[in-house]
Amino acid sequence: MAHPTETSAVRSDPPAERGGLRESLTVLRSSKTAMVGLAMVSFWVLVALFSLVSTANPYAQDGSAPNAPPSATHWLGTDDLGRDLLARVIHGSRTILILSPLSVLSAVVVGSALGLVAGYRGGIVDEVVMRLLDAIMAFPTILLYLIIIAALGASPANVVLAITIGGVPGIARLVRSLALDIRTRDYIYAAELAGENSFYIMFVEILINARGPVIVDSMLRIGYAVFSIGALGFLGLGLPPPSPDWGSMIARGRSFLQITPWAVLWPALAIASLVVGLNLLADGLHEESVRYQ
């Protein structure tokens, strides 16, 4: 057993350097669950990409066709302002597929940094960081979002900020627990003996080796973020009108649910299929990576 004080300690290769992209793809391909999830997510990614070239205008109001049922002109029908629901669902996918990963990515960056510092440094640093994060976690997540959006106003940047702040404590806790475990490994002692600085050890040695659980967690968090953006839109605190935000589409259509259910049906199906896809992808990856290891 190597020990930091032993000069004979040999730096062992961390597992991260053995796998790589090919290994990840192997894990992915070997999981049917993950492949189904990937297909569903890919569908929405393609829809979002299609919105870049689509000429359908999600804002165009057809005064002669409010709340119109699905037809040859409007495949999915129209909302109460006569706007084409298909165009709005398509353009809404782009918004949600940009904001959700972006908010999770920023939460991962901040949460990982805090978790690494707390887990690797320990002591008073750990105490201070974790208690601060506990304070944030004490707020119910949706309430935290409401407070932030109500204070700063509804905009894409503020939605990302709110979801980031809401996600940081959970990610930091995860990374901290992984860091607490990994910092006792031989290769960390070896790196310390080799004179590597703390930044290198935290972000190269520990974080790289913690990536598996963090990636799976992030996948799930993207799904939560989709939900959160939808919920904020539903509560009128998401993207400002007339953005084709799926949550606000549901909120708007809810008033007419009994007479024109399609205005709610399509954005609700969109959110559900994207979240289910992301969850299947995350679950499949998790199960297969555990089995593989």
């Binding site: 106003g153 509804a154 009108p241």
Partner: peptide
């Protein structure tokens, strides 16, 4: 630019 805020606000 539409700034939609809660009614109470």
């Amino acid at each position: 630019n539409i700034n939609a805020i809660p009614n109470d606000s």
